[in-house]
Write a protein that binds this DNA or RNA. Structure first.
Length: 965
RNA sequence: GCGGGUGUGGCGGAAUUGGCAGACGCGCGAGGUUUAGGUCCUCGUGUCCGAAAGGGCUUGCAGGUUCGACUCCUGUCACCCGCACCA
């Protein structure tokens, strides 16, 4: 540790009460324990003692951290300092502030770390949490620590399991456009109010559940138990189904689509393969439109809304049935259903493509047509199925095989061949497309390669040079559509298809159902058991939580034959209905527990609700605290023009990396809970903000490879640096890069606090630049903020005695500046513009020589959100503590509007837009006065003497511009 | 390829939203206190010409609108972040 600031303390020449690192440490730790003892930051709930219902509420939430073994890095406190400042400010402005903190502690990273170190994840996670808590407390954040919990606490995950059961016991009513309890569905089946059929939107029955004519199966009472069960399960919002999933052998678990990036796992970057497995899924697709529409009502960064909207990927088009032909081109009575966004181009559909996993391919292999090359087809399908997603993506050239089947194009009446190719995905639409090479580049590429016909059905512009034409234009070669532009042609053809009952309007989404089970150990167990016939049953609510069994061996086996880890806990696994608490079965029925666990996202889907009422053991959150803290609140009226109502969390700050993971999942859970009447708002997070990344410096060789920081030396000057790699003497360039262990450019907050104190750290991170911007950490610059605190200290406190240093008479100029500073700091906090707020305070301290008690009092109040420890200490030494209590609970000082304007102002005078002189005029000087003063100015008069004045622009209070030539 | 964002001194960044570009901090230079340095204090610091007064140039680049453009419009370049065979 470099101890420059500390050593100055021991130097006899330095005043005894100078603000040094040692003094900062003493002040900070003292007030931190004082705040703890006095429960300064505990927030009472409605009805509790100390709760003031007159005040407006402000729920300010940080994305709670994942406590890793390596401790906090400097990125964490960035967002946390920002919310801390806002909370302190809002409290001073009279709000009831909810500002909680907890731990997102289940999931893969903790488990991977445990496997590496050989210490059980329960142990490593507890240690990591303790370390994170210690580090966070050292920053002096104003969290209400009495509300702290971790997602791994059985008291918490009991309710995570409970919410799972609510979702499991719910279905989506498309007529009412909301989720309802499953028992109401059964009632409707029983009464005949709803026709009995499989859920036509159930992804797990795609291609089977929605054949023309439907799958109505008659009276509910006439059905056997198994059929009833199958039908009910097809509606559940949580369902178990065997389907193709993203299997990651290295991680030993299946992953959700959102967790796979470019064919690799989001965590660890390991390859992902497609594999059919039985998994628990959430029917999030039922909420696709609601999740999309809800984005309109929230105050979120536009880029994040766009990302979610693109992930949901709504696209409008049509489903069309193409009759399948038997050899000799005789209709077989079967049809091939496709989804297309361009039904208007159907006359140009010259071939079809189905995904390698499509049932028609299996059928073609089972009953090959004479012209089918069975060996080639089988080989293609096999290889397509076994390729990883990465390999699939790397293949630039399209490949495919004719499957030996023809369908009839219902528009042209012509037979068209059916091919299979892996550029068509089984998971989207119907897994089959009509290929229109003239209007789709992918189809064009394929058609050219395999010599398939291309028929233009949209007239491209005369100067069109490309291949496929996707723009607008009149239809050609399209019979009754000819001449119609794309939009009208779509409407026309859909009407035609609907009349002939061979197609219909259809909306498709890119969003898939959410794969919710993992084969790992460190997660919430499912409150589900299985009987020996393979039926699942919920564990009753009164028997929750289903706790995670102790296991010594929690390491996954790298395997292509995935088995959940909990499968090894045989004693736990095998139980009886009575023991586990299943109400629907006789107590002695042998059952097997669900061995999958929930993914790391589960706990973060509702933690913001639990914070409202974290010790409630009757309900996941009490109704009144939920209504109060999550309820809609009019945005504070200080920003004019924004009277819109925000619902849910008033301000949520966290990284942008969760744009489509946590933020989408939590919205989904929240909407289900809302539909079922458990929460009072439709959206969880009214206002969202992303802090930027804290970057660091790194060095790059000419070949773009990176060099660790400790292997580089500056052989130039500070002004003109020249960086060389020590080992080779080769010149390298300094770049800005992410902090990483391998580059040796990670900054540890503990060390910075030891050297300067937490107040300096907080100020530095906020002063770095705009909160939303990514910006490089520059250790060298921290000293500037330390000096500012030192000057602040010296302004209020005598460095030699430690007593207040105050004047009797206020300096009028400083009084005026103080009002301005109060105004600027308040306005900038509202804008989350902390860097400029701090600059305003620096300017004030630089300008002031001495303050009166009253002035020091007010300045310390506005400083306190930023540097709470120093503010509290000065507050105390000024003697304010005794009478008024902690500075934390004071009111924000008022500023007098009249003090914000000057009597006289300096106005630039321009000639032809260039500033040539300045005049001093009364602030409310008229246009005419300003004009005359400007023309009377000596320098201006000289400049325009030999010119003709064409025009004079006078902006009162701003400037004068003389146009003369 | 599509979508979004960002380009301002040696560095991090300001700019009342069309009105004095470079606030504030770092660094750098000069001086002071102390004196072994550092800490601390004061002043200076976009750049070019000039001894100075003063003047020219300057917000990635090229145009345009305007009395006036970092800000608005058109084109262009660079970098960053999403998405990417989604029919």
């Amino acid at each position: 540790m470099s101890t420059d600031a500390v050593s100055s303390q021991s130097n006899a020449s330095v005043p005894a009460h100078r603000y040094s690192a040692a003094l900062a440490d003493q002040i900070e730790t003292r007030w931190q324990s004082w705040w703890d003892t006095h429960k300064t930051y505990q927030t009472p709930n409605p009805g509790e003692s100390g709760f003031d219902p007159q005040r407006p509420k402000f729920y300010c939430l940080d994305m709670f951290p994942y406590p890793s073994g390596s401790g906090l890095h400097v990125g964490h406190p960035e967002g946390y300092t920002a919310t801390d400042i806002i909370c302190r400010y809002k409290r001073m402005c009279g709000h009831n502030v909810l500002h909680p903190m907890g731990w997102d502690a289940f999931g893969l990273p903790a488990e991977q770390y445990a496997i590496q170190t050989g210490v059980h994840p329960a142990e490593t996670t507890r240690r990591a949490i303790d370390n994170f808590r210690r580090q966070l407390k050292r920053f002096g954040f104003c969290y209400d620590w009495s509300r702290e919990f971790g997602t791994i606490d059985p008291d918490y995950y009991k309710w995570t399991q409970w919410i799972f059961l609510q979702i499991y016991n719910a279905w989506y009513d498309k007529q009412q456009n909301r989720a309802r309890p499953i028992c109401e569905l059964v009632e409707e089946f029983e009464s005949g109010a709803r026709s009995v059929q499989l859920n036509p939107d159930a992804a797990e029955y795609a291609g089977a559940g929605d054949l023309p004519g439907g799958t109505r199966v008659g009276e509910w009472s006439a059905l056997d138990q198994d059929t009833k069960r199958m039908i009910i399960d097809s509606y559940r919002l949580a369902y178990a189904a065997r389907q193709t999933v993203n299997w990651c052998p290295k991680l030993g678990t299946a992953l959700a689509n959102e967790e796979v990036i470019d064919g690799r796992s989001e965590r660890g970057g390991f390859p992902v393969f497609r594999k059919p497995m039985r998994q628990w899924m959430f029917r999030i697709t039922a909420y696709a439109d609601r999740l999309l529409d809800g984005l309109r009502d929230v105050t979120w960064p536009e880029s994040t809304k766009i990302q979610q909207a693109e992930w949901i990927g709504r696209s409008e088009g049509a489903e069309i049935d193409f009759p399948i032909l038997e050899p000799g081109h005789v209709p077989s009575g079967m049809s091939l259903r496709v989804f297309t966004t361009r039904p208007d181009t159907i006359f140009g559909a010259t071939y079809m493509v189905v995904a390698p996993e499509h049932p028609l391919v299996d059928e073609a292999l089972d009953n090959p047509a004479p012209e089918t090359d069975v060996e080639q087809l089988r080989a293609y399908v096999e290889s397509a199925r076994n390729r990883s997603d990465i390999e699939r993506m790397e293949a630039k050239e399209k490949t495919g095989v004719f499957i030996g089947r023809f369908v009839q194009n219902p528009a042209t009446g012509e037979p068209v061949p059916v091919w299979t190719s892996d550029y068509v995905l089984m998971g989207y639409g119907t897994g089959a497309i009509m290929a229109v090479p003239a209007q789709d580049q992918r189809d064009w590429d394929f058609a050219v390669k395999y010599n398939l016909p291309i028929v233009r059905t949209v007239q491209p512009p005369e100067d069109f040079q490309g291949e496929a034409y996707t723009g607008d234009g009149p239809a050609i070669n399209s019979d009754f559509l000819n001449g119609l532009h794309v939009h009208q042609a779509k409407q026309r053809i859909i009407t035609w298809l609907e009349d002939k009952q061979i197609g219909s309007r259809r909306v498709n989404y890119r969003l898939r159902d959410w794969l919710f089970s993992r084969q790992r150990y460190w997660g919430e167990p499912f409150p589900i058991v299985w009987d020996d016939r393979g039926n699942h049953y919920p564990v009753s609510e009164k028997s929750l939580p289903v706790t995670l069994p102790e296991m010594a061996d929690y390491a996954p086996v790298e395997s292509d034959d995935p088995q959940p880890l909990l499968g090894k806990a045989t004693d736990w696994l095998k139980t009886t209905a009575g023991e586990v608490g299943v109400d629907d079965l006789p107590a002695d029925t042998p059952v097997t527990r669900e061995a999958n666990t929930m993914p790391g996202w589960a706990g973060s889907c509702w933690y913001y609700l639990r914070f409202c009422d974290p010790r409630n053991d009757e309900r996941f959150v009490g109704e009144e605290p939920e209504r109060y803290w999550m309820g809609g609140s009019a945005r504070s009226g200080e920003q004019a023009g924004h009277d819109q109502t925000v619902q849910g969390v008033d301000l949520y700050i966290g990284g942008a990396e969760h744009a489509v993971l946590h933020l989408l999942y939590a919205r989904f859970w929240h909407k289900v809970l809302f539909d079922l009447g458990f929460v009072s708002t439709d959206e969880p997070f009214g206002k969202l903000f992303h802090q930027g990344l804290i970057l660091s410096h790194a060095y790059q060789r000419p070949d773009k490879s990176l060099v660790p920081t400790d292997q580089v030396e500056n052989v130039g000057t500070d002004d003109r640096p020249k960086w060389i790699e020590r080992a080779t003497g080769q010149e390298v360039t300094q770049i800005v890069a992410k902090m990483s262990k391998s580059l040796k450019n990670v900054v540890n907050p503990d060390e910075v606090i030891a050297e300067y104190g937490a107040d300096t750290f907080r100020l530095y991170e906020m002063y770095l630049g705009p909160l939303e911007a990514s910006k490089p950490w520059n250790t060298r610059d921290i000293i500037g903020l330390f000096r500012f605190l030192q000057r602040t200290w010296r302004l209020c406190i005598d460095e030699s005695t430690g007593n207040p240093r105050l004047s009797e008479q206020p300096d009028p100029a400083i009084e005026k500046l103080l009002h301005r500073t109060i105004h600027r700091v308040g306005r900038d906090i509202e804008k989350l513009s902390f860097n400029t707020a701090i600059a305003a305070m620096i300017e004030f301290v630089n300008a002031a020589d001495e303050l009166t008690l009253d002035q020091a009092d007010r300045f310390v109040r506005i400083l306190s959100p930023f540097a709470p420890h120093m503010a509290e200490e000065i507050w105390h030494r000024l003697g304010r503590q005794e009478a008024l209590g902690s500075v934390t609970i004071q009111t924000w000082p008022t500023c007098d509007e009249a003090m914000l304007v000057d009597d006289e102002i300096e106005i630039p005078v321009q000639v032809l837009g260039k500033v040539r002189s300045k005049i001093t005029v009364p602030a409310d000087a008229s246009e005419e006065t300003m004009r005359q003063r400007a023309l009377a100015d000596e320098r201006i008069a000289a400049l325009i003497a030999d010119k003709t004045v064409r025009k004079i622009i006078v902006v009162p209070g701003r400037l004068v511009n003389i146009v003369a030539n």
